[in-house]
Amino acid sequence: MKKTPIIKPYPWYYRPLEWLLLGLSSLPLSVLYGISSGLYLLMAYVVRYRQRVVLENLRNSFPEKSDAEIAQLARQFYRHFSEVMVEILKLATMPAAELKQRVLFRNVEVMERHFAQGRTVLGLSSHAGNWEWVLTSGATWLSAHTDGVYKPLSNPFFESFLYHLRTRTGSGLIPMRDTLRDMVQRKGEVRVVSMLSDQAAGPEDRPYWTTFMNQESGFYTSAERLASRFHCPVVYVSIQRLRRGYYEIILTELYDGDAPLPAGSFPITDAFVQQLERDIRLFPADYLWTHRRWKHKRPALESKA
């Protein structure tokens, strides 16, 4: 049975902010994109939001590009990021029918055939395109229930507000720390468990190290372990922006849930990394470059092994 995360009440003085955000969300997207232009100028040229991180990530990922090309790519990213911010806010009031028109799912049969067999499917996605629209739109496209694994926020108001955005079309949320317990309790349930698998795994997470975007990168191996233990098929969720406010989700099977997974290797994670790098190189401005993806370094002992 589905267990709803406990959402703590937030102080009364957040109410004016809630009314403001809901009021903004009720505006047409065309108006919100005008606001996003102001956000773009603010982030890119005034506040210079995480500019050092953005430029460092881009230079390390694309060493073949000149400084001018990197600067142009950074501007394109800030433009896209500002538009994603207002699109996420729009989720608070956007009708499910409109969301379905704006996010087109391709190859849904990749998941549907596993649903017909009564299976849980793991969906691996990333911080590309508009990642917040994926879970919510998936609930309108797929015949099975959709759950997203997430990291709860410490601020009670923003935790409550984002919970509302992410679940208003029928999706559920699973706190990251409760993932294994949830899988055990709901074993055999027909659903999708969606995971943003490009997060930076720390040393305490026993990450799988590989080369990603020209840099040594540590990846969580939870999808590999869950797929092996519960015999879950794994699907890569590619998020591609068609144009402003419209996205295409392409589903690609990485693992069928039946073939034995060799001990000591991580073929699912390897396949995810290859697919994600391909997407980033095709649409570099659409990735979340403010994310400190490479903040952890491989331990020296592992490097020598």
Rank of each mutant, 00 (worst) to 15 (best):
M1Q: 15
T4V: 13
P11R: 04
W12K: 14
R15Q: 12
P16Q: 00
E18M: 11
W19I: 13
G23F: 04
L24M: 13
V31M: 13
L32I: 06
Y33H: 10
G34R: 14
V47G: 06
R48C: 11
N57F: 00
L58T: 08
R59H: 14
S61F: 05
F62I: 03
S66M: 08
E69C: 05
E69A: 11
F77S: 06
R79G: 05
S82Q: 05
V84Y: 00
E87S: 06
I88S: 14
K90R: 14
L91R: 01
L91N: 04
A96S: 12
A96F: 01
L99C: 01
K100V: 04
V103D: 05
V103W: 01
V110A: 06
H114K: 07
A116Q: 15
Q117C: 10
T120Q: 11
T120N: 09
L122I: 12
L124N: 04
S125L: 15
S125C: 15
W133T: 09
V134F: 12
T136V: 15
W141A: 15
L142C: 10
S143V: 03
Y150G: 07
K151L: 14
P152S: 10
P152F: 08
P152D: 12
L153Y: 06
L153Q: 15
S154H: 13
N155G: 09
F157P: 02
F161W: 13
Y163E: 10
T167P: 08
T169Q: 12
G170N: 03
P175K: 04
T179V: 12
M183Q: 08
M183A: 15
V184N: 06
V184W: 05
K187I: 07
M195Q: 04
S197M: 13
S197T: 09
S197G: 13
A200M: 08
P203E: 03
Y208F: 13
W209V: 00
E216N: 08
E216Q: 11
S217L: 06
T221L: 08
A223L: 04
C232H: 05
I239Q: 11
Q240N: 13
R241M: 06
L242C: 12
I250Y: 06
L251S: 04
T252A: 06
Y255C: 03
G257M: 00
L261A: 06
P267R: 01
I268A: 00
D270S: 15
A271V: 07
A271F: 02
F272C: 07
F272T: 07
V273F: 03
R278W: 11
F283G: 03
P284V: 00
W289D: 03
W289H: 00
R293A: 05
H296R: 10
R298Y: 01
R298K: 15
L301P: 03
S303N: 10
A305D: 13
